[in-house]
Design a protein around this nucleic acid. Structure first.
Length: 256
DNA sequence: ATGGTTGCAACGCAA
């Protein structure tokens, strides 16, 4: 079984001990991390390598930043979204074995109608055209990360209250469906049809304790890869820990 | 009810 995961860690500096413990416990083949919030010069490569992993990363000071940790040697590494001049570090891609793996941190969007919301929609559209190109080259494609979009009512604790709000607005959900329309499937929904399974809970208002969450972290797989998905789960327990990220890891297992 | 919490970095900004 090949095991791949995504986790928005909200500062790799703060969460490094949890990431190392998580790697030791789960032993995944690939872990995609978002919101590292540190420049490449400060990336804790030695700790990652001691844990038995290689790493590729694209970071910046204070905000954003992505890293992919893996056992195998990465090839054809890319750190930019083609066609978008963007100082924000939000994507890192690599070929790992016979899989093409894209790790993404989609913009949050702040609020509907804001400049950041517009940037979010443009970023997703740019990602969509890139996926069309990538799928033509790599039939075994996996796109995983923090998409900052809850696709459906069952991915939101209170869809009526969230209707029209950022992370769940119509245009964001339509943009997300556009990503799927390139030929990708949501790995979680291939194996789990439950409502009320979330990957992110706000730090405020005791949202986790009350399970006021959204499912916004996803593992999208091409048709050829979808056939091999065996499990996909959200590891809520890591959101319950002392000093947690506001996101839980999402893990998928594939038959080799 | 426009709140509240966390991380970064220095105080407001982003999420």
């Amino acid at each position: 079984m090949l095991k791949m995961a995504t986790w928005n860690v909200n500062s790799l500096r703060v969460r490094l001990p949890q990431v190392l413990e998580w790697l030791a416990t789960e032993r995944p083949d690939v872990l995609a991390i978002q919101e590292t919030k540190l420049p490449d010069a400060d990336f804790p490569l030695a700790d990652i390598e001691t844990a038995g992993y290689r790493a590729i990363y694209s970071g910046q000071k204070t905000y954003n930043g992505v890293a992919t940790l893996m056992r195998a040697e990465p090839r054809e590494v890319e750190r930019d979204l083609p066609g978008l001049e963007d100082p924000q570090r939000r994507i890192v891609g690599a070929t790992i074995g016979d899989l093409r793996v894209l790790n993404v941190y989609v913009p949050n969007g702040e609020s509907v109608g804001s400049a950041k919301y517009q940037y979010k929609l443009e970023w997703i559209e740019q990602l969509r055209s890139y996926l069309v190109e990538q799928l033509a080259i790599h039939p075994r494609l996996i796109v995983l990360g923090d998409f900052n979009v809850a696709p459906e009512d069952r991915d939101v604790h209170d869809p009526k209250a969230w209707e029209g709000q950022v992370l769940f607005s119509g245009p964001e959900r339509a943009a997300f469906r556009g990503l799927l329309a390139t030929g990708l499937s949501d790995a979680f929904r291939l194996v789990n049809q439950n409502a009320g399974e979330f990957s992110w809970w706000d730090y405020r208002m005791n949202a986790f304790r009350r399970n006021l969450g959204l499912r916004i972290d996803h593992i999208l797989v091409s048709a050829e890869t979808a056939r091999t998905v065996r499990t996909c789960r959200i590891e809520r327990a890591w959101r319950q820990r002392e000093r947690p990220s506001d996101h839980a890891p999402v893990v998928a297992e594939f038959e080799q």
